[in-house]
């Protein structure tokens, strides 16, 4: 076969004007083989409009089948593929090659134990999330139809309903890196979603859960979370709103 002709059925793009050669460094670790993580390097032709996830797929499907990562929806709504890409937490499916250039470095998100390659143990993250009572509570008898809520009251917590639990925020937080027990920005966003919902009745319990040694007050307003959020949630602002709500209650 001509070296420039892709194999039949290959998922790589044909080389040409609309492709570019990239060098991808990936921090890899296989607990069954490696004593420690190492950088592996791959060179390949991709389209500038490819997502980083497409690039990872191309490496896995054409070059090294053992490369492991989570992915599902591939357009930024399922939250599976948060990674540290060129030093910043991003969803691999929501970042295009043309926005990175020809040199791409991918590592697992930080602060959670690496299980294999880009896959981390998400359980501590979900445990923190669950600790803030991230569910609607209203013990009044249910009305025959919907509970009423004005568009203005609905708007107050609109941004926090966008969270997809990808962990990009929490794993970009320097407080979380040094204290893995810190509840983290994602959990606080999900508390915010209910604290500011006019229909909910469990604000006291939720604020109490956050008013713990590893809770809300660990936040040092570094803004990393806000910058990392792939859903553009103003996380730091929301954390401040929850802090204020707690102070008001205490006052």
């Amino acid at each position: 076969m001509d070296a420039t002709t892709p194999a039949a059925g290959t998922s790589a793009p044909p080389p040409g004007l609309d492709t570019m050669n990239v060098t991808v460094k990936i921090k890899r670790y296989d607990p069954e083989k490696d004593a420690r993580a190492y950088w592996a390097e791959y060179r390949l032709d991709v389209r500038p409009t490819d997502r980083v996830l497409d690039v990872l797929n191309q490496i896995k499907w054409e070059m090294d089948g053992s490369l492991s990562y989570r992915r599902s929806c591939a357009h930024g709504v399922c939250g599976s593929d948060a990674m540290l890409i060129n030093g910043v937490n991003r969803l691999a499916c929501k970042l295009l090659v043309r926005d990175l250039g020809s040199s791409i470095a991918v590592e697992p998100i930080r602060g959670l134990e690496v299980v294999k390659d880009l896959i981390v143990d998400m359980e501590p993250f979900f445990d923190s999330y669950k600790s803030v009572l991230p569910y609607f509570v209203n013990d009044d008898p249910e009305p025959a139809r919907e509970r009423l809520q004005s568009p203005e009251d609905r708007e107050i917590f609109d941004e926090s309903t966008k969270c997809i639990l990808c962990a990009a925020c929490t794993t970009s937080c320097p407080v979380f890196w040094t204290n893995g027990n810190y509840v983290g920005p994602a959990a606080i966003v999900n508390a915010h979603r209910f604290i500011f919902d006019s229909r909910d009745q469990a604000t006291d319990e939720r604020l109490a859960a956050l008013n713990q040694p590893s809770g809300l007050w660990r936040c040092r307003t570094a803004y990393n979370c806000t910058e990392a959020c792939p859903r553009d949630i103003p996380i730091t602002k929301q954390i401040e709103e929850v802090k204020r709500a707690l102070l008001w209650r205490q006052a």
């Binding site: 296989d30 607990p31 069954e32 896995k60 053992s66 492991s68 990562y69 299980v115 294999k116 390659d117």
Partner: peptide
Amino acid sequence: EDDGQVFNTE
């Protein structure tokens, strides 16, 4: 290619 047991996504 992946002969492992842990997250053998391949």
